[in-house]
């Protein structure tokens, strides 16, 4: 989805990662939780923070800061888990996203949203649906489905490094890749 598809006034939940303000469509958000105990899963990439108990079901939590190449989330009083419902391969999945703090729900008119600039943001532009402007601040509206689809892919790569995408790479290269990934993990 791109900015051109935003044609009506929508509500967005804004949250902070570091000093940056991000937003996501409220319709995607199931709930916002205070930080609870996160059970880490051994031998998984760092951005996959672990799982939590959400009223009896087990929900994976992702460290959004690590997804966007910031430092690991420190737990503070304001740290929140935003529980979102995303579509991964047309399958609805509930995922928690660690954020530094949750701000508010705002209305944005379509004309308040501009396309994401090609350069100048520290996160991948295809994760950004558009840039909202509010007072003097820019708000990055995330395409949350895409963020998690990409993370899922990289998780898969972290786990199955030996399984290259193209299938045409020479074997030696695959093995080296695998070892590199394992060394990094």
């Amino acid at each position: 989805m791109s900015v051109s598809e935003i044609t009506e006034t929508r509500q967005y939940l804004t949250f902070k990662l570091g000093n940056e303000i991000f937003a996501t469509d409220v319709a995607k958000v199931r709930e916002v939780l205070d930080l609870t105990t996160i059970t880490q899963i051994p031998r998984t990439p760092d951005f996959m923070a672990g799982v939590i108990n959400l009223r009896g079901s087990v929900v994976p939590v992702v460290d959004l800061r690590l997804c966007f190449e910031m430092s690991k989330t420190e737990s503070t009083r304001n740290t929140c888990i935003v529980v979102v419902e995303v579509l991964l391969d047309n399958e609805s999945t509930v995922i928690g996203a660690l954020t530094d703090s949750v701000e508010e729900v705002i209305d944005l008119e379509p004309d308040q949203i501009q396309p994401a600039p090609r350069i100048g943001t520290q996160i991948r532009t295809d994760f950004i649906k558009g840039m909202g402007k509010r007072d003097t601040q820019f708000i990055m509206i995330l395409d949350i489905d895409r963020v998690f689809s990409a993370e899922e892919l990289s998780a898969a790569r972290g786990q199955e490094a030996c399984k290259s995408e193209s299938g045409k790479q020479p074997i030696e290269k695959q093995v080296v890749d695998k070892l590199l990934v394992e060394a990094a993990a």
């Binding site: 899963i41 051994p42 108990n53 994976p60 399958e91 786990q159």
Partner: peptide
């Protein structure tokens, strides 16, 4: 564990303990 962790091989699932935390 859901889709997100389906690549984790050594863990077959999770369970919720008496104190509310999750054990693998």
């Amino acid at each position: 564990l859901g889709r997100f962790y389906r690549h984790v091989q050594a863990v077959s699932g999770a369970t919720i303990l008496g104190n509310g935390t999750v054990a693998l």
